[in-house]
Nucleic acid binder design. Structure first.
Lengths: 118, 118
DNA sequence: TGAATGATTCAAGGATGATTGAAATATGGA
DNA sequence: TCCATATTTCAATCATCCTTGAATCATTCA
């Protein structure tokens, strides 16, 4: 993830509806969610969710694939991980004060680290 | 860092000039940089840098303090760390696929983790 | 006080982003 | 083929953000 992509990702996540969409898709996992289901959850019009989904897709944070009549959207884990990495490494130069809290979170969710730290 | 603050932080970082400012201030450390020095580095007008600095200050990512004639800006490490944490924990629900790359970065910059992982 | 320096504020503009509803596209089933 | 479903596209409007230059404020020093 380079600076250009990071700028686009930050812009994409700076809008409430879009942030909600990403959170829902991360929780939904690899199966993803259909545009209509997202629209219902987020409580916006089909037209509106389509606009924001296209915006997110263009930023690379989510991906789309047609499945019968529905279009299924999934979170693009690599990009999200890349954004976290960019923020810690490229933007913040790996400053311990900034990355320390991230290490705590990482320790709680990555199995390998649980072993070494607990 | 709650969602409202995160949205503001993402918006603040989605602009090239502002992202550059944050990067410069993180590298500058606790001593920070004066508005004029930042304007020179980033190559924008005093008026323009002032606009973006105010935007960043309002988002909580940087702080300002007058020192004689200059106004010194510093990166607010807590907020930046909070943003990384929000992205990993609140937004991405601690998904290993997303947090794993962050763990690598964290391992490289936090002294305690270097011992346990190398 | 008066001049110089460093920075902010203000107003005007142009550009970009968000929302809305109507129309269009694509798929699946009767 | 015809209809219903799922979603996107389009055009118009409104709001927000970015940029620019001139004017203003705060500080230091002669």
């Amino acid at each position: 993830m380079d600076q250009r992509q990071a700028l686009g990702a930050f812009a994409a996540l700076s809008q409430e509806t879009r942030l909600q969409i990403v959170r829902l898709l991360v929780v939904a996992g690899p199966e993803g969610m259909a545009a209509g289901a997202l629209a219902e959850k987020v409580e916006v019009s089909p037209s509106n969710i389509s606009f924001h989904l296209k915006e997110l897709e263009h930023s690379g944070l989510i991906a789309a694939q047609r499945q019968s009549r529905s279009i299924i959207y999934t979170a693009h884990y690599e990009s999200l991980g890349g954004l976290v990495r960019f923020l810690m490494e490229d933007c913040c130069s790996g400053h311990p004060e900034i990355c320390a809290p991230a290490a705590e979170v990482a320790a709680c969710c990555t199995p390998k680290m649980e072993e070494t730290l607990r």
